[in-house]
Every structure is written in structure tokens, then in C-alpha cells.
Amino acid sequence: MSVTTIGEIVRGDREIFPPYLYEAYQSTRRRAPSLPLVEVPLTISELTGPGPAISAITSEDADLTRNAGTGGEAIGQRIIVVGRVVDENGSPLPNTLLEIWQANAAGRYLHKRDQWPAPLDPHFLGMGRCLTDREGQYRFLTIRPGAYPWRNHPNAWRPAHIHFSIFGPSTLSRLVTQMYFPGDPLHELDPIMNSIPTDAARKRLIAAYDHGVTEPEWALGFRWDIVVRGDFATPFESNGNR
């Protein structure tokens, strides 16, 4: 049995979410809260959230191979990433905004703080967004991102990944996470992935190759489903807190 310290107090389920403080990930040492979190009941401020309103106004932009607006196509292995967004009861979350960002095929972000000697791609921004459909399904067309070095420890490399941001129905469902690719030898060397407490939870971050999603003569398909904290609308209403 491991002992839970204050630094390990997490937002949600300790089996799934990483602690704020994970020593092997050096930046957490200065950025992780050290005092106990204050447990608060769910008021209308937490049970609501921007998800529904911004999902209604944000335009979709799910093709990262073309959305730089240059007229050119991003360089790299074209991939299709699909999946479903569901709540913890398995109910699909329709019409919810997903945002993604990622490095280019050479492993470089289009960002002033990323200056490592890998080429930028003028036809690739690395950002996209889409809304889930009525069954909670999303679909992005992009290129497979490269791995990149970081300075966390000597010879540190991040495995290839795509960042995902999900809003969902309330502030409780707000989630920012990362999707990884199957079979990557860098997984077990990565402190960010290893900060996830259990092997089962780590596996939830790895997409599956899906030959049914792969399109002939065009792009490889990957499937990655996302589970977010639930929609508490029903207990909220039955409690009569209106």
C-alpha cells in the first residue's frame, strides 16, 4: 500500500489521474499545489460550464493537413483519428467541443518557445477543433506528430502525442489530456506518462490502430475514446436546488 501525501492529492480518482506533484517531472516541483485542496459542494457554478455555449458558436476546423490556409498540404504521414466522448455511465456526449494541438511530423511545435533544430512546416499549424456528433463521435484528419526532446533529464524525449482539450457539459467534465500512439518504445521512459498511477489508466491514453478507419490510398486510422466526469444534471434536478 502506498501512502498518500498532500502532494499526491488529486482532482479526481487516484487510480486514474496523476498527482499534481510527480518528482520525475521536474516542472511539477514548482507548479504543484502543496496545501490541501478545499472540497466544495457542487453549486450551479460548477454544474454549469462554458461547453454548451461555446460549442454552439465555435466553428469546426478538423483538417489539420489543410487548415494553415496556405493552399498547401502538411508534410508527414496522414492519419485519421476518431473516437467517442462518453461520460462515466457510458452515455455519449453529443455536440461537445474538442480542441487538439500537436507537433509537426518532425516533432516541432509552431511556438516561439520551441526552438530545437527540427524544421517547421509552413503548411502546418498543429491546431484543430471539432464537435462531437449525436453519438458523441469525433474525427480529425492530421499528420502523425514526431517525438521531440525536452530538458527534463539527460536525453529526455517525449513520445509522439496529440494534446486534447474537452469541455463537455459542466466544469467537472473539463479535461486536458494527451493521446499516444501504440507500440512506441518511448512510453516507458516518459515521466509524464508514468505519472499516471496505474498501467490500466496509462493504457487509456494510447490509441488503437483501426484498420476499419484506415482509408485506402489515403490515410492510416486510429481510434481513441474519451471518458469524462459525468453530467450531474439529473441528481441536480431531483435535489430541487433550483
Binding site: I9, R31, P33, L37, V38, P235, F236, N239
Partner: peptide
């Protein structure tokens, strides 16, 4: 303030509505 003596109080949502 993310961490330290003057750390901002951060919330953890309880699992049930108020």
C-alpha cells in the same frame, strides 16, 4: 500562486451536488 506559503486555495469538487 500555484505553490508555497501564499498558495491560492484550490478546489476539489465533491462528488455530489450541494
Amino acid at each position: 500562486v500555484l505553490r508555497g506559503a501564499l498558495e491560492t486555495a484550490f478546489f476539489q469538487a465533491a462528488s455530489a451536488p450541494a
